[in-house]
């Protein structure tokens, strides 16, 4: 009897962890709920879940309704990690099809959590290249693209450092937008390239809140209107932080 209670608790804790990881890695609410149900069914449990942006609540229903597990878990803020989303998707199917045990699930979760991110220099250079790509798309010339590259790299570096110093996330975006647009704005001051305003406009594009905005629409169409609204407002606040950063650097440069 004690065994069943213990099992229910460990299963519940694992499920909560899976849900929290998915939500903070950038999965939509529907995907999180479906995945939790799939894993729970694979292990032989029925669950009901309440998933919000920053907390997740889970109740496990035993067959004979004797033992109850119900617990709330906080979700850490969004930190995009599609390796995790992809890995947990595989995991849930393994539970369903290969009948994975709880130990296997936990081992796989630990492995997914320990997977390394891309090295920092790769991140900086590719995102910088993306910045110059944007600059080309908006009609900048090669010099503008170079400026956008440098501004994006430095801006991303500032954001990473600010995140490490545990500043408020919107403040991190503000710092990054300010520094990036200031550097790109200097090219306007010194007349580098034919269309320096394009470099300024594209230097902050690496900050666009793509995941919150797209997931917001997906969530709302799925009927998770509350989560969709929260994501939309989060996206708007990030966009606002970018705008304030741009605004500040323009004020200083036009002074």
């Amino acid at each position: 009897m004690g065994q069943i209670v213990e099992n229910t608790q460990t299963v519940g804790n694992t499920l909560l962890e899976v849900g929290a990881l998915l939500m903070s890695s950038g999965a939509s609410t529907h995907r999180t709920r479906v995945t939790l149900n799939r894993i729970a069914n694979g292990l032989g449990y029925e669950i009901e879940s309440l998933i919000t942006q920053r907390a997740i609540m889970l109740t496990i229903i035993e067959e004979d309704q004797k033992y109850l597990f119900s617990r709330l878990k906080r979700i850490s803020p969004l930190k995009p990690n599609f390796k995790m989303v992809s890995g947990i998707s595989h995991l849930s199917w393994n539970v369903m099809e290969e009948k994975w045990s709880l130990q296997q699930i936990n081992a796989e979760l630990d492995r997914l959590k320990s997977l390394p991110h891309y090295p920092r220099w790769v991140l900086l250079t590719t995102v910088g290249a993306a910045g110059s790509g944007f600059c080309y798309l908006f009609g900048g010339d090669p010099l503008n693209m170079l400026v956008a590259f440098v501004a994006t790299v430095i801006g991303l570096f500032v954001r990473q450092e600010a995140t490490k110093l545990k500043f408020n996330p919107y403040l991190c975006v503000f710092f990054a937008a300010f520094v990036a647009s200031f550097i790109a704005g200097l090219s306007e001051l010194f007349g580098i390239g034919s269309q320096p305003d394009k470099a300024v406009a594209t230097s902050v594009l690496f900050l666009v809140p793509g995941i919150p905005l797209i997931n917001s629409v997906t969530d709302m169409i799925d009927g998770n209107i509350q989560n969709g609204l929260v994501r939309a407002i989060n996206g708007l606040m990030i966009a606002f932080a970018i705008a304030v950063g741009l605004f500040t650097s323009r004020m200083i440069l036009n002074f």
Partner: peptide
């Protein structure tokens, strides 16, 4: 690709 790496895709 730049954004893909930012989002840490497989």
């Amino acid at each position: 690709v730049g954004f893909a790496i930012l989002f840490n895709v497989p």
